[in-house]
Design a protein around this nucleic acid. Structure first.
Length: 537
RNA sequence: GCACCGUUCGUCUAGCCAGGUCAGGACGCCAGGUUUUCAUCCUGGUAACACGGGUUCAAAUCCCGUACGGUGUACCA
């Protein structure tokens, strides 16, 4: 990636440079393998969906594989149904995995809890090679030290200096360590971060990043409960699963030096890394969170989610009426652009157009208005037939019997006016039901002194029309208007008021054709009775 | 605190790597047009290079600094 900004840090005189690993060149695209690795601790956030989407696009663009790996190494944070939710969410989005917990694959298992045994082996390898060590400090002990140092306005880090003062296999005699282990004393395994090195990393989006290992600490790789931490598990699995590119959220950038160090310690080739910018709150500061959705009234999750413990319900894009293609299109453009002025992309077109170096560096805010605009676009593009089948559900909910009415035609007349299928009803209810009331604003504006007599006249005249097609009624009514030298607007607006109940809706003659002659005359009658003759004043 | 990342219209962004454009597009908003209403649609408008230095004939673009923001700093991922 050419936009890498060279960063000329102050020279570290006594520091040796860790050379960059040899560049991995992929001779064939089939060696491109990427993964999305969520933790099943709840519903998948849309930021996660976007990360997965970019991974997917990247893989498919190059004919590579896209893998779903469940990172469930924290047993305390297990949430029932979260994994199923993740699978269902991508299903809805139309994003398919080549290897996953449900689909399997030759690099399984794809759930880290099921790979438990192998991690300790790799942790042991690091201990053998001197890159890791046992630590017996209890969380309480460490917390106390932390508090103590905080009181002195210092920060505690388990680093090259502190580890010499703590209870671990570097400070204890070998026999003591042996004893502790045999006595089943709880322990963790920590990475022995080398001192005085500059870790040089190449990020596909941000370019070169350098970090001095002296500011890094000895992260826990293996927990006392027998499970690895994310750091160990993701490096081991990415290596074992032959992951070629790690594309993940920017929140992982600070731990990249650790991961790179782990690859170095294992002596493994590194994948390439790309850290995606975050999704931000639409207002204020910070990254988008669940609360923002509740507060601002838009979904933060692809699908609705009911918390299994509290029963709390979080809305989803699907349930809010977004089409998956609109959702995907919108998400894709939040942080990436095609380099030209196209805005509408199907998934397949995204695959074609996607490129990692067109991904931006800065976080983006979600814009609900634009999201609606995308949905409107896809709704209008849909065939009337497809919309009718969706609209039928709405009618059922409203307990409306469409009878013999041509729903296909009706939907076609009003679809331009809505963003969501659910809005179709309020734009078409008058096709099915006579107005139950007349909008006061419209009455005030459109129901003139002469309206009563004119509409009465109109009723009589329409009653004589045999051919009640839109075309014919329009011809007849317009001729009548001209003949009597009435105002076109005056008549039509009053007429619309009686038929629709307010100032909205498509071409009036199209409406009366659908509701038919009888209903039309009834509605005029009813309106005349309710509205009466407005007195001149 | 420390480390790292970032900063172009209200929002998403192009342009930056290979300095020279009236800084382009889209959403929104505003105005006008079309129209029997509303919406759509069409036309036009509004509005941005965080700040300060430096390099250069010329800086949104390259360099340095500042400010602001974000992320990380857990036996979470």
């Amino acid at each position: 990636m050419g936009s890498a900004k060279e960063k000329t840090n102050a020279p570290y005189s006594s520091v040796k440079l860790v050379p960059l690993p040899p560049k991995i060149h992929f001779m064939e695209n089939s060696s491109i393998r990427v993964r999305f690795a969520p933790s099943p601790t709840g519903p998948l956030h849309i930021g996660g969906v976007r990360t997965a989407l970019y991974n997917y696009l990247f893989a498919k663009k190059s004919g590579g594989s896209f893998i779903l790996r469940i990172e469930d190494t924290d047993q305390n944070r297990f949430v029932a149904g979260a994994e199923e939710y993740i699978v269902e969410a991508f299903n809805w989005c139309g994003i398919e995995f080549d290897e996953s917990v449900t689909k399997g694959g030759e690099f399984g298992p794809y759930r880290q809890s099921e790979r438990k045994e192998m991690y300790s082996e790799y942790a042991d390898m690091l201990i053998q090679s001197g890159n890791a060590y046992y630590a017996f400090d209890t969380p309480e002990e460490l917390n106390n030290i932390r508090k103590q140092l905080e009181a002195e306005k210092k920060t505690f880090t388990y680093d090259a200096v502190q580890r010499t003062l703590l209870k671990n296999s570097l400070t204890l005699a070998a026999s003591e360590v042996e004893e502790l282990l045999e006595a089943d004393t709880p322990f963790v395994i920590r990475f022995k971060m080398p001192a005085d090195q500059i870790i040089v990393m190449e990020d596909e989006i941000r370019g070169r990043v350098e970090v001095n290992t002296n500011v890094l600490d000895d992260k826990i790789l293996f927990k006392s409960d027998g499970m690895p931490t994310y750091h160990l598990a993701n490096v081991v699995d990415d290596h074992l699963m032959k992951i070629s590119h790690v594309i993940r959220g920017e929140e992982w950038l600070p731990s990249l030096p650790l991961h790179v160090s782990l690859y170095n310690a294992f002596g493994w080739d590194k994948p390439k890394f790309a850290h995606l910018p975050l999704l931000l709150k639409p207002d204020g500061k910070g990254k988008l969170s669940k609360r923002d959705g509740d507060r601002l009234g838009f979904p933060v999750f692809p699908l609705q989610w009911t918390d299994p413990v509290t029963g709390e319900v979080s809305r989803g894009y699907r349930e809010d009426g977004y089409f998956p293609e609109a959702f995907i299109n919108m998400m894709a453009l939040l942080g990436w652009n095609p380099g030209d002025e196209r805005e509408f992309f199907s998934l397949a077109e995204l695959v074609e157009a996607f490129s990692i170096d067109k991904v931006g560096k800065s976080g983006s805010r979600f814009d609900q208005e634009k999201a609606k605009w995308f949905n409107h676009h896809y709704l209008v593009e849909k065939s009337n037939d497809e919309l009718v089948s969706l609209f039928l559900d709405v009618l059922k909910e409203k307990n409306v019997d469409p009878g013999q009415k041509d729903l296909n035609y009706i939907v076609g007349l009003v679809k331009e006016r809505v963003n969501f299928v659910s809005e179709l009803w309020e734009q078409s209810s008058f096709f099915f039901e006579a107005p139950s009331e007349y909008d006061p604003q419209t009455v005030k504006k459109r129901w003139k002194t002469d309206s009563f007599d004119q509409m009465k006249e109109l009723k009589i005249m329409l009653g004589e029309v045999q051919d009640f097609t839109s075309e014919n009624t329009e011809k007849v009514v317009k001729a009548w208007i001209e003949e009597n030298e009435y105002g076109m607007g005056t008549i039509m607006n009053a007429f619309r008021l009686l038929i629709v109940g307010e100032a909205k809706g498509p071409h009036l003659f199209d409406i009366i054709e659908v509701i038919g002659k009888e209903d039309t005359l009834d509605r005029i009658n009813c309106g005349l009775q309710v509205l009466g003759k407005k007195e001149a004043n």
